[in-house]
Structures are given as structure tokens and as C-alpha cells.
Design a protein around this nucleic acid. Structure first.
Lengths: 308, 308
DNA sequence: GATGCTTACGATACCCGTAAAGATA
DNA sequence: TATCTTTACGGGTATCGTAAGCATC
């Protein structure tokens, strides 16, 4: 058994059992691919692929059982290389953060600034996406770190960590009737047209849930992907905004007024990395800049779960 | 990077950085070992070992970081071989169960009988040991399955499953005063000389804890490793026995009487396997015979945690 | 001087790619 | 017939072990 054989097994599966394409993907000859598979099967004494004559059609039962282990071994081989690179490295490279508007616009700027100062040679890419897309991006290795409030749990390939906690607050035009009220109840709100986030974004699920439990039907006249859009329409008087507290900036948003409220409970923004994968050192530093409790040891060990 | 290099790294660490012994353990030349290490270090661009002149003294920081990953890769390589062997196999091989007296004597016999019937060619070894020893045996791969009521949690290298639940009961000579009483309290018991298990065996900790919480000091006149010894001395009138309920056999123990009691609460006997390790198919079958909820899928997936 | 690591070197085995042949759609 | 896989074969390379040289204790 050698690594080339394992790579060939993995690639053959990825290329839907077409040895010619597997060979092309690995920049090698297809005769070699064929022979390697045969050799490995002989060594293990098991057929890994279902064959019909000379064509490969799929995985046998042992093939399936081995496939996931093969994957992990190749991931580990990569991990070893990445770890080593990190020790030699001059802190150069690329870091891809997949995140939502809310984070990119209101939370990350100071962190990015500090990161850039510490690692000027790292090419930092902020990839804006929806929470579901973020989970997918990180799962497939197209992003190193994902940050979002929704959707990051429930993916077995991801390991997530609490980043920070926050609440929603209300945004109204200056002098709005609600800003005079001492206390605001959910039923009060249900009487106003509301503008808030789209489903699946920035804690919208929590808002819906809160109304649902109170057996109220909110009048959401408009939903947007980000607080900037929401605030624009609140300024136009189209309704009362519900946004993340952090999205209000008294300096810029002078024509608006923020009303703190705990009506919708607490949200937790999560930070996710790919399970079983090692990141470059500066990636862990970025996470630590986000939340100092998440140091390299905590994050890496959790991601590698129990290597023993 | 190849497997021989990884094996050499692991063995060198195991042999306390003596390349000569590492070579001997791997049945290869020590010059080859030396070269392999050098080659791998060159390929990764990192020193893995701390050197003083020509001698190796220990692991560098990158060496430590890589070591655990290397271990897992080699474990996975083994897993692949074991899985394959299992598919070709004619259900021959060896199965080592590390367990306590209580299990071996009172619980496992019917299971062993059924197992032997199903897998006549498997050489089954019941290795009797203390709970702590059992955990060690399984951790080090010297046993495939560990069964005990104590000590099996808290080892990161082990994955444990609840096997069955049971309680302690009292054992007294026929006609003993306690057997006339309607109800028996803890303070009643504290007035009698007691005979029960040694510390760390068969729920003894639970017994101690129960007395401690009731602020009573039991008069344990004798402690033994197994119920047979305890029963012998109870027969001699030396005291009241506290043993696992299953350890009483009305047929054999005619001169004794069992008194069911829930004074000491419930105990859970656990079944443990080594994390990240695949077992032979018949080993999973043994576990399934113990508890039908623990089928191969449940146990293997839990042991491999998330291979993704 | 004994033990332990590295380097040099030759034999062997392994891996790869070309090419031809056979199978499948 | 076009696509795909297997087998055969030759060149190149990597690996292994012996042996010699050198450092450490």
C-alpha cells in the first residue's frame, strides 16, 4: 500500500470510476492507474470496485468501507504538509474567510485591520455569502473559516465555535412613536409594518420563532439581506427595522434611532472550520483575534477531534 | 512521503530516539532508517528531531505536532488491512476480551456459548483483570474489547458503550435476622459487619458513596475481588454480603439468601473499544450478542468518530 | 573502546509511461 | 468505430543492505 494507490482510489471514485479521467486528474498514465488498483486489490485480497467485464461501475461493500478511511489518510497527509509548511513559512499565503454581510460590514473590520498588521504578506479574501453557502464553502475546502449566525451547525464535516453573542434591536426614524414608549411589547410591534432580514440570515429564524411562540403574526413588509438596505427603507418611513444591535452606528445613522430590546433573545454568531483539517498558523491567529478564548490549541484539537 | 518513513518516525519515537533499535524493531537496516528520516525532513523542510551532533535526543515542536497525525495515519493503514481481512476472512482469528470476574463468571457464559457456536474457528481469550488494567489493556491494543463497571470512562483513547444496568443486593445466611425485616435501611446495614468488593471493583465506589452521602460509616470487615469469595465468608457467618444481584444463584447458593434492595442505586456495566480502531467483524458480533442495540454500525461509527 | 549515526555504493525491486491487444458501448 | 481497460515490456528511479567512516559517550 502506498500513497499513490490511495490517491488513485480516491480520484477514481471522484471521477465516477473512469480510469482515464482519474489518470488525467493525477497527471499520470491510465495504465499505471489500472495497475495500481489491481495491485492494491491483490495486496488487500479484496475487490474494491464493482466491474462489468473491463468497466468499473462502482464500489463494492469493502470498497465503500475503505473509501472513508482512505479519505482521512489523504487528508492527514495534507495536514502533515500544511503543518510543516507552517513551521518553515514566512507567514505568506492565502486566507479565505466566508462570511455574511453583517460580519463583514460591522464586526470584522477592526479584526481584519489587526490581522493585516500582524501578517502583511497574507492575502486575505473575504468571501461574502449566505449562511448555507458559507457552510458549503468551508465543507468543500473552498474557504478556510466560515463565520455566520445560522446554518453552521448540523454539518458533520464542520466544527464550530461560539464567536460572540448579540441581540436584535429596533431601528426607527427619529421621533417615531415607538421611541416615546417606555416599554415595547411584541404585540406592540405586531401592529407596525416591519423590515428585517431575509429568512436564513442574521437571526431571522429567532425573530420568527419569537413571534410564533407568542402566537402573533408580524407584518413583515420587506426583508433584505443586510442591515444597510433595511436602514435605508426605515429612513423612508416604510416600517420599523429589526436589525442586529451592532449594525447601528449613531454617527452615520443620524436620521435613525436605535431602541434596545431583549424581545428576541440572544443570538450566537459561530465560527466554523473543516473537521479533520489543519489550517495554516495565521488562520488560527485570525480566529484568536476574533475571540481570544479560541486559541490555536483549542481550535486545532477540536477540529482534529481525538487523534489520541 | 511514504509509509515506511511514517513507520520509522513512529518507531524512532517509541524506541526513545535510538535509530539502531528502531531499525531492529522494523526488521530493516539502521542506515535505511537514518536516510528515511533525513529524506522526510528534507521533503517537509522541517527538522523533526532534536539532535546533538549525531545523536537524536527528542522531538522538535513540528515533530510533536506531526507525531499524533502520523500515528493516526498508521492506525488507519491498519484499519484498512483489518477491514479487508474481514471481508475475505473465513471468520478465523483471535478475539481478546478483557473483563472482570463478575462478568466472566456470571454474565458472559451464555454469550460466549452463543459466540462459539456462531464462530467456532475464532480463538476466544477471556483475560481477567481489574477495571484499571482492563482500560490499559484495551488502550494499548492488547485486548479488543473491555468490559467492566468502573474505570472505562475518562480514557480518551477508549470509546465506551452502556452494556447493561444492574443493582447490588444483600446476601445473608439462611434465616439471618435481616431476612425477617420488612424493610432494610442504610443505618440498619451500618450496624452489621459487611463483606463486599474491593475498591475499584464492581460498583464498590457506588456503595462507598451511598454510605458517605448518608453520613454513615459502614463496618466493612472484609473486601474481596469477586462474589465467590464474598459468598464463602458470608456462609461462614462473618458478615452480610453486598454483591451484584446477578452473582446470586439460588441453585448453587442454597445456604444463602438474597435480599433485593435498591439502597445503592443503579450501576452501569460498560463495554469499551479502542478509539479510531477497526475491529474484526466477529468482534462486533460479540458486542452485538452482549447488547443487541450495539450493532456493528453503531459501534464502528462511534469508534471512528467522524471520518466524514 | 563501545555505541550510535551518517555517507557511499552496488544490487534489487518498484514505479512509470509507451505501445499493443482486448473488451465494451 | 470510438472509448475504455488490461497486459506486456523497457527505462528510470527509489529502496535496501553492506560496509566504511565519523561522532558521541
Amino acid at each position: 500500500m502506498n500513497f499513490q494507490q490511495l490517491r488513485i482510489i480516491r480520484e477514481t471514485i471522484r471521477q465516477k470510476f473512469n480510469l482515464t479521467e482519474a489518470a488525467a486528474a493525477l497527471y499520470t498514465s491510465q495504465s499505471g492507474v489500472s495497475k495500481h488498483i489491481k495491485d492494491l486489490e491483490d495486496e488487500l485480497g479484496v475487490q474494491l470496485f464493482v466491474r462489468k467485464g473491463k468497466r468499473l461501475l462502482g464500489l463494492t461493500e469493502p470498497g465503500q468501507a475503505l473509501s472513508s478511511i482512505v479519505d482521512r489518510m489523504l487528508i492527514d497527509a495534507d495536514n502533515i504538509k500544511r503543518l510543516s509548511a507552517d513551521f518553515t513559512s514566512t507567514n505568506e499565503g492565502e486566507l479565505i474567510i466566508a462570511t455574511t454581510h453583517t460580519q463583514a460590514r460591522y464586526v470584522l473590520p477592526p479584526i481584519v485591520a489587526r490581522f493585516k498588521q500582524a501578517f502583511p504578506k497574507v492575502h486575505l479574501i473575504l468571501q461574502q455569502a449566505s449562511p448555507v453557502e458559507i457552510a458549503e464553502l468551508v465543507s468543500h475546502g473552498e474557504a478556510d473559516i466560515g463565520i455566520a449566525t445560522e446554518s453552521l451547525t448540523g454539518y458533520p464535516q464542520l466544527v464550530s465555535f461560539p464567536y460572540y453573542r448579540w441581540e436584535h434591536s429596533l431601528i426607527v426614524p427619529q421621533g417615531h412613536q415607538l421611541s416615546q414608549q417606555k416599554t415595547i411589547t411584541l404585540s406592540d410591534l405586531a401592529n407596525w409594518p416591519l423590515i428585517t432580514y431575509h429568512g436564513g440570515f442574521t437571526g431571522r429564524s429567532k425573530i420568527d420563532e419569537t413571534f410564533r411562540q407568542a402566537k402573533l403574526t408580524p407584518d413583515v413588509v420587506m426583508s433584505a439581506l443586510d442591515a444597510d438596505v433595511i436602514k435605508t427603507y426605515v429612513e423612508l418611513g416604510m416600517g420599523v427595522g429589526i436589525v442586529a444591535s451592532i449594525a447601528f452606528d449613531p454617527e452615520r445613522d443620524r436620521r435613525l434611532q436605535q431602541i434596545e430590546t431583549s424581545l428576541f433573545g440572544e443570538n450566537v454568531t459561530l465560527l466554523a472550520v473543516r473537521r479533520n483539517h489543519v489550517l495554516r498558523g495565521f488562520a488560527y491567529k485570525f480566529i484568536e483575534l476574533c475571540n481570544s478564548e479560541l486559541d490555536i490549541k483549542v481550535v486545532r484539537e477540536a477540529a482534529l477531534s481525538e487523534v489520541a
